[in-house]
Every structure is written in structure tokens, then in C-alpha cells.
Amino acid sequence: MYKKEEPPLRFSGKKMPGDKRFDFLAFHGTAGSIGIEAKNIREWIYPDRGEVKELIQKALASDSVPVLIARRIPYVTFRLLEACGALLFENYNQLYPSADAELAKQAAQKDLLGYHDIRTGNQPNDRLLKFIAETVPARADEARARFNKYRDLLDQFATGQLRYPGFAARVRRREQGQPEDADAQPEPDFDPNDYEEGGEW
């Protein structure tokens, strides 16, 4: 077990919205601040979830490159958020501290919840260590450039001015160098939970 020091609400002249904080805060020499959110929950993190919008809001308010770590992240979330400058890591496991080993064992039992992907322990695995120590620093500058390029669309999405379909369409058109209002029309009802892996977004 360890004692975690909470990231500050104000840093480098920037103030976080309300009393919201990142789970972790890092600094990169040229990319600046990096806000890291670790969501150790069972639900898949789709683009329209509150956790995503809150991460974007905090990243915009603090001018930080957003980083999302979660148990399961579908392709559509990777595709959309990485285009906008976020860095994502899928852990594949729900983690329990060693102190909760008995609870984790019960949750994993087939005749109870049957969560086969539960892991116990207080140390990060090698994949996560590599992501934090190597991938994030190596990709921070390119992520910063994309974040700056798409921050207007991120803001409109996080504040509800753009719903998911319009946000995704505008990101796609901007990526392809097309006029973003070229095929503007009323947004259809769309549930990203209906998205099929490997399909278009």
C-alpha cells in the first residue's frame, strides 16, 4: 500500500475546473503537462461516457495532454480520441490491491460474479510500466500537436454543443482535409454501444 499525493488544483498559472483533479499529473519537457486518468472499472469506456467528457474538460482547462488508462477501451474510442491528441492504454484486467485478495477471489468465482479478468497486487504490470515510462514520453509531442489542433472540437463535445455523431464526423473530415460543414445535417440518434468492432465510426 502507498500514500498518494493528489495533483494540485492550480499549476503553471492554470486552474482546474471546480474541485476536479487528475488522478496523476506529469510534466514533459516540450509537451508540457500531461493529465492521467486511471479508470479501474468494469464498464467499457465508450466515447460518450461521462469519464471521457470529464477527462477532456480537465485537459482543456489545464492545457494538459489527456491520458486515459482503463480496463477495456473499444476501438472506436481509441480511433476518435487518439486522433484528437489523447493517449490511451487498455489494461485488460480489473485490479484489486493485495489487501482485498479475498474479495477479488470471490468476485472471480464462476458460481458468483465470474469475473475472470480480476488481478490482485500492488505493483503495476510490465505493460503499464512501459506505457508510462516509454510510450507516453515518446508520443507526448505528437499528442500535444493533435490536442492543440482539435481542442475546439473537443471543447464543443465536452460541453454538449456537439453530440457524439457530429463530433466524430467533424474529426474525420478535419483529418481528411475536407470542409467540416460539407455534409452537415441533423444528427441522427446514435448509441456508440451499438458500434461493431472493426467498423466505421
Rank of each mutant, 00 (worst) to 15 (best):
L9N: 13
L9S: 14
L9Y: 13
R10D: 15
S12D: 15
K15T: 15
M16K: 11
P17G: 12
P17Y: 10
P17M: 13
L25W: 11
A26Q: 06
H28L: 05
H28N: 09
G29E: 15
T30W: 11
G35T: 03
I36G: 02
A38M: 06
E43R: 13
W44A: 07
I45K: 04
Y46S: 01
Y46T: 03
P47R: 01
P47Y: 01
P47N: 00
D48Y: 05
E51C: 02
E51M: 04
V52Q: 00
V52W: 00
K53G: 04
A59R: 00
A59C: 00
L60T: 03
S62M: 15
D63Q: 08
S64I: 04
V65Q: 04
P66M: 02
L68Y: 00
I69K: 03
R71N: 07
R71P: 01
R72S: 11
I73D: 00
V76Y: 08
T77P: 00
T77R: 00
F78I: 06
E82W: 07
A83M: 09
A83E: 15
A83H: 13
C84W: 01
G85W: 02
A86H: 02
Y92V: 13
Q94T: 14
Y96P: 06
S98K: 14
D100A: 03
D100H: 05
A101L: 09
A101H: 08
A104D: 06
A107G: 10
A107K: 13
A108Y: 05
K110A: 09
K110H: 04
K110P: 02
D111L: 02
D111F: 05
L112C: 03
Y115T: 03
H116G: 11
I118M: 10
R119E: 15
R119W: 13
Q123T: 10
N125E: 10
R127D: 15
R127E: 14
L129Y: 08
L129V: 09
I132T: 11
I132E: 08
E134F: 09
E134W: 08
V136T: 01
A140V: 10
E142D: 14
E142W: 10
A145R: 12
K149A: 13
D152F: 06
D155P: 03
D155W: 06
G160W: 11
G160H: 07
V171W: 03
R172Q: 08
R173K: 12
R174C: 09
E175N: 09
G177R: 09
G177C: 06
D181K: 14
A182D: 07
D183I: 14
A184T: 09
A184C: 09
A184W: 13
E187I: 09
P188W: 01
D189K: 06
D191K: 08
D194T: 12
G198V: 00
G199F: 06
